[in-house]
């Protein structure tokens, strides 16, 4: 049975109720999936990240908290941390794989159905464009400009003051406007 509001959902998590996790996943998996795709530029890695994010939520279920009646800011915070670690791991993995012959390109089944190759290529262009931004500015950009969080919600997600979110986003936009992030 669906839990009506997110306060009830958080209560369920605090009571170790698996249905609450399932409901949270059903509600927000797509948002987290796209957030992680925008962080990694890879749909398959985004899938892995979604799984990791909600497992982390379950592991820390007693620490889940609401912001203005929504669990999303906290959830985005977990996702940001998971994707940050995933990206770092990927960089290490790519370095380790650099000496091996490259595998043949193999679009996965989802790509076959929905033709996601175009979006992957596009996202990688975007990530290349913003790669010169400091991580903290890129994360604010991803949360506010790409995922649509308010400054307050992004502040909760990143556990920084709202003013810091504003200044980081302002600096990121300035750098992009001036082309410094190329």
């Amino acid at each position: 049975m669906a839990i009506e509001d997110e306060a009830g959902l958080v209560d369920g998590l605090h009571r170790d109720d698996p249905d609450a996790l399932a409901e949270l996943f059903d509600r927000h998996a797509d948002r987290i999936y796209n957030h992680c795709f925008r962080a990694t530029g890879d749909w398959a890695e985004a899938e892995d990240a979604v799984s990791a994010v909600f497992l982390e939520v379950w592991r820390h279920r007693h620490r889940v908290r609401l912001h203005d009646g929504s669990v999303l800011p906290w959830l985005y915070g977990v996702a940001t941390n998971v994707c940050r670690n995933l990206t770092r791991s990927r960089r290490r993995r790519h370095r380790a794989l650099a000496s091996l012959p490259p595998p043949a390109a193999e679009p996965d089944h989802a790509e076959r159905v929905t033709d996601r190759l175009g979006s992957t290529a596009r996202m990688r262009e975007v990530l290349t464009a913003v790669q010169a931004l400091p991580d903290r500015e890129r994360e604010v950009l991803a949360l506010v400009a790409w995922s649509g969080l308010s400054y307050e919600q992004a502040a909760v997600a990143l556990e920084v003051p709202v003013g810091t979110v504003r200044s980081r986003l302002s600096r990121a936009r300035a750098r992009l406007t001036q082309g410094e992030a190329r």
Partner: peptide
């Protein structure tokens, strides 16, 4: 300005 517009959600 650098184009930092991501593709649509899926």
């Amino acid at each position: 300005m650098t184009d930092a517009t991501p593709p649509p959600d899926q």
